[in-house]
């Protein structure tokens, strides 16, 4: 199937994402990819697995079908979706035809949602991927976010939809699990204990690069004065900026950095963390690597 979509309305951080641009860290380029990988996969299963997605935020999204037809799958957080003005179940799927519109507005929880299709988004891969890097400004549509008026072509690809049971409930609350980080031993034991005991709050400064935390308890009020050699960063790393601000580095993280990193959010909890809205309290709990793997494999 093929279709031509038009972006009618887009929030400022709407972007094309695929699974990610892996293997390019040695060239100074992070993988990017979906902020909520589980929701990205679910939207793909609902649509029929065409390559690429449109990732949108709480600012919402509206698309129109200029020509052709396609199946769309949508998932991620909680959003309200209307197909030609009619509310559909979220997450879910719909068949879109020329002249149709699909409008998404925020629901009760979550920051990121995904539209995927039964055909491939027709954009040239850059270094093997169409994922948009907001940091390196490459991939996606000319390395930039999507905005109203953009045309997105779909063609080829896709398989039949593989409808699974829909996990529509809000993910479990509870602490975000971490593995002690690269520089954990540079933080005094008492400070590490305060880090685990404290309640942080998701700040309003969050994007694909990182999520800054409010540290009302002042855990990092007296930052460790360190001159560190720049070293590898992975998604989920929690680094402490020079002014004491903790920031959780996300999918568009810089590939290396020199601020101290106390811990790394485990893979099984990174999607859930990405969906926490501004103002949400968050606490951290350390686990072993083995436990992190067991959690990932038991999802």
């Amino acid at each position: 199937m093929s279709a031509m979509l038009t972006i009618l309305r887009a929030g400022p951080l709407t972007s094309v994402q695929d699974a990610g641009r892996f293997g390019m860290l040695r060239h100074g380029i992070g993988a990017s990819g979906p902020m909520d990988g589980g929701a990205f996969a679910l939207a793909g299963a609902l649509a029929g697995g065409g390559c690429g997605s449109v990732e949108f935020t709480m600012a919402g999204l509206e698309i129109g079908v200029a020509s052709g037809r396609c199946r769309v799958g949508f998932a991620g957080g909680d959003f309200v979706v209307k197909h030609n003005g009619v509310v559909l179940d979220w997450p879910g799927t719909a068949m879109l035809r020329a002249g149709d519109t699909l409008a998404v507005t925020p629901g009760t929880w979550g920051n990121y949602g995904y539209l995927r299709f039964d055909a491939d988004i027709d954009l040239p891969p850059v270094m093997g991927s169409m994922a948009t890097s907001s940091r390196a400004q490459l991939g996606g549509l000319d390395g930039r976010v999507l905005r109203a008026g953009d045309a997105v072509a779909l063609r080829g690809g896709g398989e039949s939809a593989t409808l699974a049971t829909l996990p529509s409930a809000e993910p479990a609350s509870g602490p975000i699990r971490v593995i002690w980080g690269l520089h954990a031993d540079l933080f005094p034991q008492a400070l590490r204990q305060r880090f685990l005991a404290a309640e942080f709050v998701i700040s309003s400064r969050l994007d694909r690069m990182g999520v800054r935390l409010e540290d009302a308890a002042g855990v990092f009020a007296e930052p460790v004065a360190l001159s560190l050699v720049s070293d590898a960063i992975v998604p989920g790393d929690i680094q402490i900026l020079g002014d004491g601000t903790p920031i959780v580095l996300m999918r568009d993280h810089q590939p290396t950095g020199g601020y101290p990193r106390i811990a790394t959010v485990i893979s099984a909890d990174l999607d859930r963390f990405a969906q926490l809205r501004h103002g949400t309290p968050v606490a951290f709990e350390p686990v072993t690597v083995e436990h992190a793997h067991a959690l990932l494999r038991s999802r």
Partner: peptide, 22 residues
Amino acid sequence: VVEIVPNLVSVLLRYDPWASAP
């Protein structure tokens, strides 16, 4: 090991946590 990344004083080895044991 799915990616090898030399840094200033280290090498990062990325692996698939679904498939591999560190």
